[in-house]
C-alpha cells in the first residue's frame, strides 16, 4: 500500500494499493525511481491536489485498477498497409463508461471540482481519466453558443469588438447547427 498526501494544512492522507496508484504515470515513475526505498512507510506529498480532489482520484484509481492497460497501437507491418495512412495516429473515440458517468462531478455547482479533478489527472498523468473528463466537457460545450461556453468556463473574452465581429463573420458557416 502507498500513502498519498493532499496539499491541505494539515495534509489529509489516503492509503491506496500500489497497483491502483500506478495508474498515475507520474507516481509510477516516481516509485520506479525510488526503487529500494521502503515506500510503504513514506507518504507521497501531492502539492497540487487538495483533499476532496484526491479523494475522487483515489476512488477512480481503485475502481479502475484492474482495467486492462491501454493497448499500444500495433504497428502493422503489412505490405498493403501503405494506403491505410501510416501517419494516421488518430486517437480512438473516447467513450465514457457507465461507472465513470456517475463518478464525474457533473452538477453545475461541482464545476470547479470537475476542473480540479481534470487538473489533478493532468498533473498525475492519469490519461484515461483526463480523456473521459475532457470528453464530458467537450460534449457539454458542443452545440452551445460561444457566450455560454465563456460563461461556463469563466473564460475572459480577450478579443476587441472589431476582431470579434470579423471572426464572427468568417466562421458564420459553422454557427448554424
Amino acid at each position: 500500500m502507498i500513502q498519498l498526501c493532499s496539499n491541505d494544512d494539515p495534509p489529509v492522507s489516503f492509503t491506496v494499493p500500489r497497483k491502483a496508484v500506478e495508474l498515475s504515470k507520474t507516481i509510477k515513475t516516481m516509485l520506479e525511481d525510488l526503487e529500494g526505498f521502503d515506500m510503504e512507510q513514506t507518504p507521497i506529498p501531492l502539492p497540487n491536489v487538495d483533499a476532496p480532489t484526491l479523494e475522487l482520484i483515489v476512488k477512480w484509481v481503485e475502481q479502475h485498477q484492474d482495467d486492462p492497460p491501454p493497448v499500444e497501437k500495433p504497428r502493422v507491418e503489412d505490405d498493403d498497409s501503405d494506403d491505410s495512412d501510416a501517419d494516421d495516429d488518430q486517437e480512438p473515440e473516447v467513450v465514457i463508461p457507465e461507472w465513470d458517468k456517475k463518478f464525474l462531478p457533473t452538477d453545475d455547482e461541482q464545476k470547479n471540482q470537475l476542473f480540479k479533478l481534470l487538473n489533478a489527472a493532468n498533473y498525475l498523468e492519469i490519461k484515461p481519466l483526463l480523456d473521459i473528463g475532457c470528453k464530458y466537457v467537450a460534449d457539454k460545450i458542443s452545440g452551445q453558443t460561444v457566450e455560454w461556453v465563456r460563461d461556463y468556463l469563466n473564460m475572459e473574452n480577450d478579443y476587441t469588438p472589431e476582431e470579434e465581429a470579423k471572426l464572427k463573420e468568417e466562421i458564420a458557416w459553422a454557427e448554424g447547427l
Partner: peptide, 10 residues
C-alpha cells in the same frame, strides 16, 4: 465545425 465555432471564445 465546433472547433471553428469555439475559436471565438478567446
Amino acid at each position: 465545425r465546433e472547433l471553428h465555432r469555439v475559436s471565438r471564445v478567446c
